[in-house]
């Protein structure tokens, strides 16, 4: 056994080895029972044993819910348990999709749902575009020769670590009636604006705040992509006296494109599910002007007195279909990238 314990554990510092102490103790205690399990199932059977805890939790909290989701969306009533729910077929979906004119949410049976679909579509379109452009710009700037690059990277990155609630509160504080922004505005001689109480401004800030919070994440992925572009390509271009804009269009952008594609799809997946920051910032208001699909699901299923779990399930399945499509796209794209890199 002595040969095994001497396997180096990476560059473990004394602190981390101290933190690992209770962990080691636990693992040591499990030695004997796991030995018994191994005698029972054999070495080959241990694979399934190691997999079991994760798969058990995974099945209970992910796989089974996926199945139940379908069942919910096909039943009606306000009960949580299935004993008191009755089968209604596709009625929930019909309710959701019943619309006089899909372009005008007010003509729909579930006008709140369609309003949230419209809002989400608008949000996704504008937010993803802005997010990709701003993070690309940030990545390009951070990729330049400069001092204190680590500091600047931190400046743009740190909001990624803030919780959405904190992000929402920070901006709510700035945007409120007597907030910092209105003070600056009045200082420059403009009128006070109720940023979060006017439809268009509320949407603007929902998008702005979401870009603010996430741009560092995507900038980082793009920065890694930029740094992977071989230097000699740029040097060759310099020798030929190629202009900077041309270098950008002809070298940087094409070679960055795979990363850019991943970023776009990741941003799309996140944007479709927008909830936390916007919810804390605007609460979906004014009216329903910044209510997004996830909030609709939350309100329909949980926040209302009449919990319409069936309708909420149906809505979440419709959203899930969009997300599955986007994620499949992402996997295809990143697989292709991996294959290209391997080649």
């Amino acid at each position: 056994m002595s040969t095994i314990t001497e396997v180096p554990g990476g560059q473990a510092s004394s602190l981390s080895s101290m933190l690992a102490l209770p962990f080691r103790f636990l693992m040591g205690v499990l030695n004997a029972p796991m030995g018994a399990v191994q005698r029972r199932f054999g070495i080959a059977g241990m694979g399934a044993v190691f997999l079991a805890p994760n798969m058990l939790i995974f099945s209970v909290f992910v796989l089974i819910p996926v199945a139940i989701n379908l069942a919910y969306s096909l039943t009606g009533g306000t009960a949580i348990f299935f004993d008191d729910r009755h089968f209604v077929g596709l009625e929930q979906y019909q309710t959701l999709l019943m619309c006089g004119d899909y372009a005008a949410p007010s003509t729909c049976l579930q006008d709140a749902f369609w309003q949230s679909v419209h809002n989400t579509a608008f949000f996704v379109l504008v937010q993803v575009t802005m997010l990709v452009l701003v993070s690309l710009g940030t990545a390009l700037v951070l990729n330049r020769e400069m001092r204190a690059r680590g500091f600047w990277r931190g400046v743009f990155f740190f909001p990624v670590l803030l919780s959405p609630v904190v992000v929402g509160l920070i901006w709510k504080w700035i945007l409120q009636r007597d907030g910092l922004l209105n003070a600056i505005l009045l200082d420059f001689g403009f009128e006070r604006i109720l940023w979060l109480a006017e439809r268009n401004w509320a949407m603007f800030w929902a998008i702005f705040v979401s870009v603010w919070a996430h741009l560092g994440f995507y900038a980082l992925i793009l920065l890694a992509g930029l740094q992977a572009i071989p230097r000699d390509l740029y040097e060759a271009a310099m020798m030929d006296g190629t202009g900077r804009m041309r270098v950008f269009w002809r070298i940087t952008l094409p070679l960055l494109w795979p990363n850019l594609l991943v970023v776009i799809i990741l941003a799309l997946i996140k944007a479709v599910q927008i909830f936390d920051e916007a919810f804390v910032l605007t609460g979906g208001g004014p009216g329903t002007s910044t209510m997004f699909i996830t909030q609709y699901i939350y309100e329909t299923g949980f926040a209302h007195v009449l919990r319409n779990l069936g309708l909420a399930s149906a809505a979440s399945i419709l959203m899930g279909i969009v997300l599955v499509g986007l994620t499949a796209l992402q996997l295809v794209v990143s697989n292709r990238r991996a294959r290209k890199e391997a080649a």
């Binding site: 909290f61 819910p65 996926v66 139940i68 919910y72 939350y298 299923g301 779990l309 899930g320 599955v324």
Partner: peptide, 18 residues
């Protein structure tokens, strides 16, 4: 299931947890 974010299964998860 990488494709199934929590926001899609909150409703049934609520039943399971209950």
């Amino acid at each position: 299931t990488l494709m199934v974010p929590l926001s899609v299964i909150v409703v049934p998860l609520y039943l399971v947890v209950n």
